[in-house]
Amino acid sequence: MATRAPLIRIRQLRKTYLEGDATRCIFEHLDLDIHPGEFVALLGRSGSGKSTLLNLLSGIDLPDAGEIRVDGQTINTLDEQARTRFRRRRVGFVFQFFNLIPTLTVEENLLLPLELNGMNDAEQRRRATLMLDQVGLGSRRSSYPEQLSGGEQQRLACIRALVHRPLLLLADEPTGNLDDETGAQVLALLLKLHREAASTVLMVTHSREVAEQADRLLYLEASRVREIAR
């Protein structure tokens, strides 16, 4: 694995936030490599910058200094439009609070990333329908998100994140809002989808138990990332 070039390569990353009159440093000289196909769990205390790191990787946010390369592309030098295109094509997102589009049905939610990527041909649509059946939502395709249970919503969010076959899946506490049993089901689904699609996953979590399922464990503290030995 070490011989392959990393999919994510972060060097000397610095990110600060202005809080009132004070500047709060989130990262300072942060370096990180994640290789293609890895399932990485990122642990850390609240406010340590886990979600900020996901936002920086997806191009939602920009660092103050340093370099973020994903699949050979330095994303922090891209303009807003290019970063959006990058996110649209290369990244899938799973959030703690699902963030499904309340005004679209289950099926429409799933088709949206395909449509944004101009991939809405019959074959892709058929594959999306199949994915719905695979996660047990085939009969709920015309329902709206608010009519689903939490577990169902997160399952839908997982397949929505992967339906357009992104290189990188970013999951921000995907089980944080679910009970243990449902959380375990969603995690199993994420792992299954990761294996099937051979995608790279960076998952933020508070749970050591959840993190143990990943290939690598990272701990974010004092503005740096530390590798946790298994």
């Binding site: 959006t84 295109r85 649209r88 990244v91 997102f93 959030f95 963030n99 589009i101 949206l112 990333p113």
Partner: peptide
């Protein structure tokens, strides 16, 4: 704003 944020996160661009 929530909906817009989700769409932006999914890759809908400004235009």
């Amino acid at each position: 704003r929530g909906l817009l944020g989700m769409l932006r996160a999914l890759g809908a661009d400004r235009r």
